[in-house]
């Protein structure tokens, strides 16, 4: 007795249009020769060319990618450990505090995380002399802190849904717990690890506010460069950059989606 409800479909269509029209316009205008958004003066790759020669932006992008990759690789480990604790260790002492620490970074306003971490780094430098100045290390630590919470959410749900009979079979055959974990559990949750890593990577690549607080002179991330040029007004180079980011992300999400789907079919 399923009937299609037209008002509902109308809202759904409006919602998708609302989410996608701005992005599509950005992509369209990245190929516009004119600097003005309102004038279409012809198709051109001019802004992409300028982008490739913008050294300040490219350096920042390189720093951001290095931070994002390091962040994602550490966060995936910490987040998976946290997910193990929550799914496999039942009601341990301090569990509610543990959950609190893992949920709070998801909603905590960026300005608070940024400011508090900066003050920590300054205080640490003052008392123990580390970290010496701010840059790659401090930005990466800050990103790992909030990425871990996101990774834990992704890995936790996968771990909770997992069928444990394979693990039990291996145990019965005499495998050691660590061996079972690395050779059975990890491969089974691999898709979640992959999407967790990707999520941590993109979250880091996207962060402006926290990085602005904890970065030092000479360590400017990509969002910081984008922000300062956006504050000057609309810039077609940023449109071109946006198009490249959208293309890469779409590709990554498609690959992740297909691999997840294939995995669930198996």
């Amino acid at each position: 007795m399923k009937r299609r409800s037209w008002p509902l479909l109308g809202i759904l269509a409006f919602g998708y249009a609302f989410l996608y029209v701005p992005i599509l316009l950005l992509i369209l205008y990245s190929f516009n020769e004119s600097r003005l958004v309102t004038v279409w003066s012809g198709f051109s790759f001019k802004w992409y060319g300028e982008l490739m020669h913008n050294h300040q932006l490219l350096d920042a992008a390189w720093l951001s990618v290095r931070v994002a990759a390091t962040n994602a690789s550490v966060a995936i480990v910490l987040g998976t450990l946290a997910a193990n604790a929550l799914v496999r260790h039942g009601r341990f002492r301090g569990r509610s505090g543990f959950e609190l620490l893992l949920t709070a970074p998801l909603v905590m306003p960026d300005v608070i995380i940024g400011l508090s971490l900066l003050l920590l780094f300054v205080a640490m430098q003052h008392t123990i002399g580390w970290p010496d100045g701010r840059g790659f290390t401090t930005i990466t630590i800050a990103h790992i802190t909030f990425s871990t919470a996101y990774v834990a959410v992704v890995v936790r749900s996968r771990l909770a849904q997992m069928d444990r009979s394979l693990e039990e079979a291996a145990m019965d055959l005499g495998a050691r717990p660590l061996g079972v974990y690395t050779r059975i559990t990890l491969p089974l949750i691999a898709p979640a690890l992959f999407s967790g890593w990707l999520l941590a990577f993109t979250l880091s690549l996207d962060d402006l506010v926290i990085a602005s607080f904890v970065s030092g002179p000479g360590s400017t991330t990509l969002p910081m460069v984008v922000y300062s040029s956006v504050r000057m007004g609309v810039s077609p180079q940023i449109n071109a950059l946006a198009t490249l980011i959208v293309a890469v992300v779409t590709l990554a999400v498609l690959i992740a989606g297909i691999s997840l789907r294939r995995d669930s079919k198996r």
Binding site: I23, L25, D206, V226, Y227, V234, A242, V246, V249
Partner: peptide
């Protein structure tokens, strides 16, 4: 998954 900053920027135009 696409940049938050850039999506906000799209609205300026």
């Amino acid at each position: 998954w696409t940049s938050f900053l850039i999506r906000v920027y799209a609205w300026i135009g």
